[in-house]
Design a protein around this nucleic acid. Structure first.
Lengths: 129, 129
DNA sequence: TTTAAACGTTACAGCAGCGGTAAGGTCAAA
DNA sequence: TTTGACCTTACCGCTGCTGTAACGTTTAAA
C-alpha cells in the first residue's frame, strides 16, 4: 500500500510517517518502481507501536528505543519497566507542576471581578509575586 | 546595572534576557557608551513580570500581551480575566491528558514483572493497543 | 486525447523557548 | 601587562512535527 493508505490505517499524517523514516525511528520503507514508498502489515505495526508510545507521552527517541527492544527476542521486561518507570516519574513531575499552576490561576481568576475596572488581582500577582 | 546583575536579580539567564529583548517581549534596554545593556528597576519589573507569567505556564506571546495590558492605564480586568480563563482551560486539558497517560502507565507498569523474562505487558500494550 | 485532480517525491523554512558555541571587544584587579 | 570575568553579535541545535515549493506520476473524467 502507498503512504496515504498507511496514513489512513494508522491515523498518522503522511508527513509524520516520512519524518519517522527520515529520523530512523522506523526502518526505511521499500519503494515501488516509480519511487513511491510501500507499506505492509509489519510496517503498519511499527507505525502503530510508535503512535501508541507517543500517545503515552514517550519521546520519539524513547519510542524508537522501545520499538527496538520490542523487536529484540533476547529482551528482558526489566529493561522496559525501567524506562516506563522513569517516564512515569517525569509525567508525575509535570502533572504536579501544572497542578500548582492551576491552583494559583484558579485563585487569582476567582478573585478577579472581570469587569470594566482597572484593578486586577491577576496582574497584581504577576507584578508582585 | 549590567545584564549579569539583572540576571542575578531576576533569576533569568543572560541569554534569556537578550532573547526577550530580541523578540520584543520587553522594550530594548538602554546602552552604556561601550554598548553594554543597562537595566534599572523598571526593566527588572518587566523581566520579573514575564518570568512570573511564564511560571504560570503562559506562552511568551501571552506573557508579552499581559505585560502590555498591565502597563495600559485604560485596561479592564475583564480583558485579563478572559486570557487567564482561556489559559486555565488549556492547563486543565493538559492535566487531564497527562492523568490518562499516568493511569495507563501505572497499570502496565504494575502488571510488568520487571524480571529477566521476555514477556512484557508494557510492550503488549504498545503492540496491540 | 487531453487535462485536471489527487496522488507521490525531495528539500527547505518555520514554530517555541531557549542553550551552546564561536569570535570578538572591554574592563578591573593583581 | 596579563588574566579572568564581563560584554557584544551571530549562528546552530534541540523536539516533533507542519507548511510550502517545485516537481513527477497515476487515474478519472470531459
Amino acid at each position: 500500500m502507498n503512504i496515504a493508505e498507511a496514513a489512513k490505517h494508522t491515523g498518522l499524517s503522511r508527513k509524520t510517517i516520512r519524518y519517522y523514516e527520515q529520523q530512523g525511528v522506523i526502518p526505511p520503507a521499500k519503494r515501488s518502481a516509480n519511487g513511491y514508498r510501500l507499506y505492509d502489515t509489519a510496517q503498519l505495526g511499527c507505525l502503530l507501536f510508535i503512535k501508541r508510545a507517543r500517545e503515552l507521552g514517550f519521546s520519539l527517541n524513547d519510542s524508537q528505543e522501545l520499538l527496538s527492544i520490542s523487536q529484540d527476542p533476547g529482551r528482558t521486561s526489566a529493561s522496559v519497566k525501567k524506562k516506563a518507570e522513569l517516564h512515569l516519574q517525569k509525567i508525575n513531575h509535570q502533572i504536579a507542576q501544572m497542578q500548582k499552576m492551576k491552583e494559583v490561576l484558579e485563585d487569582v481568576v476567582g478573585e478577579c471581578m472581570g469587569d470594566e475596572q482597572t484593578h486586577c488581582p491577576i496582574l497584581d500577582k504577576l507584578n508582585k509575586g
